[in-house]
């Protein structure tokens, strides 16, 4: 099929066909990263701007590597060094960048909807690299790619997502994506971390970790943001880890061949015990990072008209 989308703003807007095209394209790019010379000329002469208004190591690096492996010129702008501190609005920043004729702008922003605003303003392709608590589409795509590789399919699997669902863009994008692909999604977290009416998204939610991971094929643990403690949505890391940390004991409730995922960076001993995080029998955390580059290569390729 022809992939004629201008932007990738969220998984919510993508069709099953589009997700399949992205995943298949990504699979075909996996091999490039294993070569001795990890570079193809596909996007030579294209310019990609990574516009990051929020701190990020992994995602920004992943986008940068993805662009470079396709021979695009990649430029990183982070909030601390940009004009944002001088009081320039997102709109002005966008129009200035647009005037320099890049091909793709990758944006991460703490405000939900910021990539959507940008997409209405500029003619360039926009990729959402995470907006507030809204969506993180590339993370969900790399998660689905990882699951598909490990399990051979997505449909029919039971995926448990555990942690601070309310503040998680990873959770939202995965809920949309996995549900579209036919997986069953269940959530767990303290009641204060389960947002209102979340079950209307077609998921079940539990306040006990054990209830969610029971018979799960995939267990996805979310990072606890330490600063959330100030909002009184949980009393202490100590108590949280006693009830919501995935460990060698409770993982036995999941299917014996269950895989464990985490979008990173992990808080060892808080939401995931080191024994699980580092056990290759369960943990696919580094596979996720590996797939991230391929998925981002695929999106850069598709959005610049690669499959026309």
């Amino acid at each position: 099929m022809k992939f004629d989308r201008k932007d990738i703003l969220g998984i919510k807007d993508l069709s099953v066909d589009e997700i399949n095209v992205i995943l298949e394209t990504a699979e075909s790019f996996l091999e490039i990263s294993t070569r001795e010379i990890k570079k193809v000329p596909t996007l030579r002469g294209k310019t990609i701007i990574n516009l990051f208004f929020e701190a990020s190591t992994r995602t920004r690096t992943s986008f940068e590597i993805a662009g470079k492996r396709l021979s695009a010129d990649t430029i990183n702008i982070s909030a601390s060094t940009s004009s944002v501190v001088k009081g320039e609005t997102l709109i002005d920043t966008a129009r200035n960048l647009e005037a320099m004729n890049p091909d793709v702008i990758v944006i991460r922003h703490s405000a939900a909807g910021a990539p959507h605003l940008l997409a209405t303003l500029v003619k360039q392709a926009i990729i959402n690299a995470g907006d507030g608590a809204h969506e993180h589409p590339t993370q969900a795509l790399l998660d689905m790619m990882t699951i598909k590789e490990k399990k051979g399919k997505l449909a029919g699997l039971k995926v448990a997502i555990v942690g601070d669902i309310a503040h998680s863009r990873v959770a939202r994008s995965n809920i949309y994506g996995l549900a579209k692909m036919g997986a069953e999604v269940v959530l767990a977290g303290p009641a204060t971390m389960l947002p209102r009416d979340i079950e209307q998204m077609g998921v079940k939610s539990y306040t006990k970790l054990e209830d969610a991971i029971c018979d799960a094929d995939v267990v996805m643990m979310l990072r606890i943001q330490l600063e959330r403690q100030k909002q009184n949505i949980f009393p202490s890391l100590r108590e949280y880890s006693q009830h919501y940390c995935l460990n060698t004991r409770n993982i036995k409730l999941a299917r014996p061949d269950a895989i464990v995922m985490h979008p990173g960076p992990i808080n060892r001993g808080v939401e995931i015990s080191p024994d699980i995080a580092d056990d290759p029998a369960y943990s696919v955390i580094l596979d996720q990072v590996n797939k991230g580059v391929a998925v981002r290569m695929a999106l850069l390729y598709l959005l610049t008209g690669g499959n026309e």
């Binding site: 939900a112 909807g113 608590a133 809204h134 309310a166 209102r196 998204m201």
Partner: peptide, 15 residues
């Protein structure tokens, strides 16, 4: 408004 739409939009709700 806090509800289904604030949940899917990832915007903090006003209950």
């Amino acid at each position: 408004n806090e509800g289904y739409y604030s949940t899917i939009l990832g915007l903090r709700g006003i209950p």
